[in-house]
Computed example of a mutant assay.
Amino acid sequence: MYSKKELNLFIDKQGIFLENKGVTLTKIKNYLLTSDLSYQILYAVLTQDKVDTYYFCLTHGTSHSTLRRKIRSINSELSKYGFHIICANNFAIKGDEKKLRNFFSVFL
């Protein structure tokens, strides 16, 4: 993720040392979040009306069953906010428009 000029890990007999030259925790956190499948699912449903399930699985290197499991897991968390993701040939988020807009602004 980073070049050796930005972040370098040294392992020797004295121990392990991480040399940081300008990498922030925010940069690392953003990278980890955007590489997570749950984040990708939420981002897709919040920015698009309907997401093609086949195309999403193909572009993110995941199976349809894994996608469904992740959506079930996400839905268990989203249910307390009053909306959920439906999944078939396409997947989309359903719920009160005002709540979705508020969640979208906080999410991004």
Rank of each mutant, 00 (worst) to 15 (best):
S38R: 15
Y39M: 12
Y39Q: 10
Y39A: 11
Q40V: 09
Q40A: 09
Q40N: 13
I41D: 00
I41K: 01
I41H: 00
Y43G: 07
Y43R: 14
Y43E: 15
Y43S: 15
A44L: 08
A44G: 10
A44R: 05
V45C: 04
V45A: 02
V45M: 03
V45W: 01
L46Y: 06
L46A: 05
L46F: 12
L46T: 03
T47V: 08
T47Y: 07
T47P: 05
T47L: 07
Q48K: 14
Q48P: 02
D49M: 03
K50F: 01
V51P: 01
V51L: 04
D52H: 03
D52F: 02
D52K: 02
T53F: 00
T53C: 01
Y54E: 11
Y54T: 12
Y54G: 05
Y54K: 15
Y55E: 13
Y55Q: 14
Y55M: 10
F56W: 05
F56H: 03
F56L: 07
F56A: 02
C57T: 06
C57M: 09
L58Y: 13
L58V: 09
L58F: 13
T59V: 10
T59L: 11
T59R: 12
H60S: 10
H60V: 07
H60Q: 15
G61F: 09
G61H: 10
G61C: 07
G61T: 07
G61S: 12
T62N: 07
T62H: 08
S63M: 08
S63K: 13
S63F: 10
H64F: 14
H64Q: 14
S65C: 08
S65D: 12
S65K: 14
T66V: 14
T66M: 10
L67D: 00
R68Y: 08
R68P: 01
R68M: 09
R68N: 11
R68T: 09
R69H: 14
R69P: 04
R69M: 13
K70H: 12
K70G: 03
K70Y: 09
K70S: 13
K70N: 14
I71Y: 02
I71T: 05
I71R: 03
I71F: 04
S73R: 14
S73T: 14
N75L: 06
N75Y: 06
N75S: 09
N75W: 06
N75R: 08
N75C: 07
S76R: 14
S76A: 10
E77V: 11
L78K: 07
L78V: 09
L78D: 06
L78M: 11
L78I: 09
S79C: 10
S79W: 05
S79L: 10
S79Q: 13
K80D: 12
K80Y: 09
Y81N: 10
Y81D: 11
Y81H: 12
G82S: 09
F83V: 03
F83S: 03
H84R: 12
H84Y: 13
H84A: 11
I85T: 03
I86V: 13
C87Y: 04
C87H: 05
C87D: 06
C87F: 04
A88G: 11
A88E: 06
A88M: 05
A88I: 01
A88H: 06
N89V: 03
N89W: 03
N89G: 10
N90Q: 05
N90R: 00
N90I: 00
F91M: 01
F91R: 00
F91D: 00
A92F: 02
A92W: 01
A92Q: 04
A92S: 08
A92E: 03
I93M: 03
I93G: 00
I93E: 01
I93F: 02
K94A: 05
G95W: 03
G95T: 04
